[in-house]
């Protein structure tokens, strides 16, 4: 039995050693069930991921329903020009970048700080409760999250106005102030996602070799020194990867939360590219114009990702590819 098994392995290895056309066919035939399994998922990817990529062609066309994506007449860069000439073009770019960069500056280090702090304390009920409570807001839906913001900040019943009133300050409608919009958006994100974001860093910290701490203790290092010289360096690779991914996304600010937070009063600060795409495209039925803006956005992101990744490769030898 054992002999037969090793013979079969040898045969198979011999077959794998000679990659020719016949070999490939044989391999596929032998594992035909794999191809049956991946058929439906691949079909999905083709239809819902790759077909839309070709659908961006309408950005260069005068799309109409009758002629469809391929039949509609070419207009070249007309819609891109139209977008760049929009009086609000710079305002939308500024709002988008302003919110994402602000979010990155505040929101990116927050999970690292939380993970470092949690790593300092002993495993026990306190640590467990902090983890459990800080992860929980991640599961709150965007609609509920925005409602919590609106309700808590509302001038007549909210928690925040209660606090203001307690200090003798007249409550104001904070959601209606354009200058506060970015801060409300970013800090509520910090509230919701810091705990979840910390998990990945906690995982990285738990992988640190305990010998390093022992050695540091023997050398008389303080806790702070251990954080600076052991913990933080061990977080660098995962931090760089996450930073690359985030920087490659600065132009794509999620639509859901910002759209829900918009109101006529804060419009000047809250109109961003994704909400504009939705309004012109689906509400205004101007498909080509909207697709052009979307494509512009994707291309900027893609280029940024490549630039940042190349820079990271040069500077720190950690990169996505």
């Amino acid at each position: 039995m054992a002999g037969a098994r090793s013979e079969a392995v040898l045969q198979r290895q011999a077959a794998q050693g000679k990659p020719n056309k016949y070999g490939v066919y044989k391999k596929i035939k032998k594992h035909w069930q794999f191809y049956l399994l991946v058929f439906a998922p691949l079909l999905y990817i083709a239809i819902f991921k790759y077909v839309p990529m070709f659908g961006v062609l309408i950005a260069f066309k005068e799309y109409n329903v009758v002629q469809g994506v391929f039949g509609s007449p070419w207009v070249g860069f007309k819609y891109f020009k139209q977008f760049f000439d929009t009086p609000f073009f710079w305002q939308y770019i500024k709002n988008t970048l302003g919110i994402t960069l602000y979010g990155l500056i505040v929101g990116f280090p927050a999970p690292i700080v939380l993970a470092l702090a949690l790593n300092e304390i002993r495993n026990g009920w306190f640590k467990k409760s902090v983890q459990m409570v800080t992860y929980a807001p991640y599961f709150i839906s965007t609609v509920i999250m925005v409602s919590i913001i609106i309700v808590n900040l509302s001038p007549h019943v909210g928690l925040f106005s209660n606090i203001l009133t307690a200090f003798g300050v007249e409550p104001v409608d904070l959601m209606g102030k354009p200058e506060l919009f970015k801060s409300i958006y970013v800090w509520s994100d910090v509230w919701q996602y810091t705990g979840y974001g910390a998990i990945i860093y906690i995982a990285a910290l738990s992988g640190v070799n305990p010998d390093l701490y022992e050695a540091a203790k023997v050398d008389g290092a303080t806790r702070l020194q251990k954080i600076v010289h052991i913990d933080i360096p061990s977080l660098v690779p995962v931090t760089v990867i996450l930073l690359i991914l985030n920087l490659g996304n600065v132009m794509s600010l999620g639509f859901e939360k910002i759209y829900l937070m918009q109101n006529p009063l804060n419009q000047t600060a809250s109109e961003v590219i994704s909400t504009y795409v939705y309004k012109v495209g689906l509400l205004g039925a101007n498909f080509s114009f909207s697709a052009a803006i979307g494509l512009f956005n994707s291309v900027v992101n893609f280029v940024l990702l490549i630039v940042v990744n190349t820079a990271a490769k040069k500077l720190s030898s950690t990169s996505l590819w």
Binding site: K49, P52, V56, I58
Partner: peptide
Amino acid sequence: FALAFTMFFDGGLIPNYLV
């Protein structure tokens, strides 16, 4: 590769809607 590529480049709202 075909899968990973879709994580970085997306057709956008309108092309998805049209599909």
